[in-house]
Amino acid sequence: MNASDAAVRDRLTTAIRERGDEIADRWVQLQQERAAIGIDEGELREEADALLVLLGGALNSDHGMESVVDAHQDLRGAVMELSLRRERSGATPTATSLAILALKDALLEAVERDNHDPRELFPAALTINRLLDEAAALSFNAYVERREEIIQRQSRQLLELSTPVVHLWRRILAVPLIGTLDTARTQVVMENLLQAIQTHDARVAIIDITGVQTVDTAVAQHLMQTVNAVRLMGADCFISGVRPSIAQTIAQLGIDLSTILTRATLADALAAAVDMTGQDSPATGTTKNR
């Protein structure tokens, strides 16, 4: 940090210390004028006081100007919390950014009151700008991250819904797959199926792909993995409902599914599975891994 930078930071901390109330009042007023947010004045004022204290602390710290807000743990936390509070009260991310940016005016006005020299005011204005631009960007980023989390949670829930494991018969489970198979989905299928095998003490699992439109190398690979995992658990696995076009693709791709038990329809697979569990000879209690 160079000398002039230090002087500017010093000037700002002094203004915050001596004119804190003034700045807070003005900020609250500006927020109410510019950014329509449904938070009452008392709360805004409390928030402003707390944030100004942290801002003063951050300016006093030895964090570089390029990331004061991000580097100062407490200030960073306060900005993220402010962002969350606004979102909950229904503010758009734009309104939240505008609200934070309004603090620029409040701060600058306070500094202007004690300094009239433009040579001193200009660097102060620059610093205020950088500081609050960073804070506004951070609040926006926090908003995006929260959205991202929601999207991920929802897509996970959607996956769970779209891949049910059905307890079809005594010790026989089935997973009817419909639509497109991708890595994420196959992994969910695998996890749910293996868990269900353990829970139901199942001997045979049937993966029915009647509703799957296309199979490529990756999907075939995933299916193989699922079958292998089922076998490692000590159960057996059928794949049923292979459409002619899919059989053709698999043959053309040269994927070796020869170690996998397949049946044309779910009914055929069920009949075979019942046969397998019904005799219950000692040999059917285990699985030989290939």
Partner: peptide, 28 residues
Amino acid sequence: MRPPVAITLVELGLQLTGVETALNAEQG
């Protein structure tokens, strides 16, 4: 074998070729 272990093994590319498995000790 626990389900997460089975999943991890196949992703690791290990099939335990030639090893006979059972769901639990009782079945084994």
